[in-house]
Design a protein around this nucleic acid. Structure first.
Length: 476
RNA sequence: GGCGGCGUAGCCAAGCGGCCCAAGGCGACGGUUUGCAAAACCGUUAUUCGUGGGUUCGAAUCCCACCGCCGCCUCCA
């Protein structure tokens, strides 16, 4: 089944053809580590994760690179030299690298909580200064860039395709006229490749004196290093389209003379309660904060991946609760199947169940192949679950086969708990007491036990065979 | 000012010319089941897709206008 993806570069859906058969190279714009990444950042990272897991589901070998920006981006294009990382460093009176390390750790922790598969390499900008200098040198040598004092600028008029990704033209950009004129630049749209500013905390030696790299060069340099001058897919948030990715293309293609990236995927912004997320509105939640509020980590993951990546998703606490319910629906089915798998005889897998599984997987594949149509894919998943729940005479072999199918789906979704949650001995004791009371038809004691378990934050459900399932209580 | 996206049930969200009197999830209501619950299953919950026109044998899907929301053009996933 061929995969179709919407390519920002061509502004249409295209069949995905990897450069090397069976292999995919993906570069994702990662976090700038001057603060805790929030749910919006993670939506974009989760889209990359979903894409990667889906390719792996289809049997492709994925090489995934995600950069860690530990050199701050400039706040503006004027010569102020203040950047976010530096700002935080000055405010917290810490070394920029110390800040970067702290927030990188925060990012990694949250990624793990969200069950994001680690990238193969997380290159740090500060560890690739030499690669950036080399690329800048090439651009100067080839005439794409010019030196003014200790600063290097990219001359956008030298790169014919500048604006192709974003749809901007130089004329339109000039009409925007929100750019402060910098007398050093030949054209207002020229962007910095290397900057000189003695006030800057992070400085490196270069052929043009001490300074620091411009905003965009790190991604061009690092992606080329780890994936080659040409690679398959580049992902990021919609805000990256311009100027960041536009400039990346100009740099990489200027330096190599080859087409840089074949497919550009951009994730649309997340809204919170219908509003743009921003610091002033106080709705920039981090993953850790949501977990502290009592929401489950897999519900956060589900909520963030459950709508199409090219659509604004309105993130709400109610949505998070709905997500938790949806996951429990899957989890419940898994629980029943495991129960059957343990307690029933083995046997043949009926043809109709084989077909149920293979149809489900084929439709799931088809849905995601359709530009990652996750809504359709989830619908397939729940339709399958309904059919499975109707089967009341499965043998253990069949249960295992169905579990295997759910496992394959979850290898992409990544929302199921790997192991059954550790239930405290005290709770199990109460559940056993209830079981005994039930056997004696002592409903009063049985109900009291169940209430007590509920009060302790757990939920006890009876199963038809006289057994029970204990699960974590809801959030809030 | 330039470029782009969106508006589908109480909420989230597919569908993008006939299979649609429109998937799926959450919620609600009724039923089966259960000691009672929960879960599961069955059924109900949009004859209608922001509004008004048009094209077409046929439109949620195409065109036009209008209204509303959002994003980018400036650090931002």
């Amino acid at each position: 089944m061929p995969v179709e993806l919407y390519n920002t570069l061509t502004k249409r859906r295209e069949e995905f053809k990897p450069m090397a058969p069976g292999k995919v190279g993906i570069y994702s714009c990662g976090p700038t580590v001057y603060s805790h990444p929030h749910i919006g950042n993670f939506r974009s990272f989760l889209v990359a994760d979903l894409l990667k897991r889906f390719f792996e589901f289809k049997g492709l070998k994925v090489t995934h690179i995600m950069n860690i920006t530990d050199v701050g981006h400039l706040v503006d294009d004027a010569d102020e030299g203040a950047d976010k990382l530096e700002e935080t460093a000055r405010k917290e009176k810490k070394d920029p690298l110390e800040i970067a390390r702290f927030y990188t750790e925060s990012f990694m922790t949250a990624s793990k909580l969200l069950n994001i598969k680690p990238a193969d390499v997380y290159p740090k900008a500060t560890e690739h200064i030499q690669e950036m200098i080399d690329m800048v040198k090439t651009l100067v040598d080839k005439g794409y860039a010019y030196v003014v004092g200790g600063n290097i600028y990219y001359d956008v008029t030298k790169f014919a395709n500048y604006g192709r990704l974003s749809g901007n033209t130089l004329d339109d950009l000039n009409a925007g006229a929100r750019i402060e004129l910098n007398p050093e630049k030949k054209n207002p749209q020229d962007f910095a490749l290397w900057k000189h500013d003695p006030k800057h905390l992070q400085q490196w030696d270069s052929p043009w004196g001490r300074g620091f790299p411009g905003w965009h060069i790190e991604c061009s340099a690092m992606s080329s290093k780890y994936l080659g001058a040409q690679f398959d897919i580049h992902t990021g948030g919609e805000d990256n389209i311009f100027p960041h990715h536009e400039c990346e293309i100009a740099q990489a293609e200027g330096a190599s003379g080859k087409k840089f990236v074949h497919y550009w995927l951009h994730t649309r912004f997340l809204l919170f309660d219908g509003e743009k997320m921003s610091k002033s509105k106080g709705n920039l939640y981090t993953i850790q904060e949501l977990i502290e509020k009592g929401f489950k980590k897999n519900a956060i993951r589900y909520a963030l991946i459950s709508s199409h990546y090219r659509q604004n998703y309105n993130f709400t606490f109610d949505g998070l609760k709905a997500a938790a319910q949806a996951i429990d629906k899957i989890q419940q089915c898994v629980f029943q199947l495991k129960d059957i798998s343990k307690n029933k005889e083995s046997g043949q897998v009926r043809k109709e169940l084989q077909e149920l599984s293979s149809n489900c997987l084929a439709q799931f594949d088809e849905a995601l192949s359709d530009d990652l149509n996750i809504s359709k894919a989830l619908a397939v998943c729940f339709d399958f679950l309904r059919e499975v729940n109707k089967v009341d005479d499965a043998n253990s072999t069949e249960a295992n086969a169905l579990l295997d199918t759910i496992g394959k789906i979850d290898s992409v979704l990544g929302v199921l708990e790997k192991a059954d949650e550790e239930v405290p001995a005290q709770i199990i004791e109460m559940a056993e007491k209830r079981k005994e009371a039930k056997a004696n038809k002592d409903w009063k004691t049985a109900d009291a036990m169940r209430d007590e378990i509920t009060a302790k934050g757990w939920i006890l459900e009876d199963t038809p065979g006289g057994g029970y399932r204990i699960k974590r209580g809801g959030q809030d």
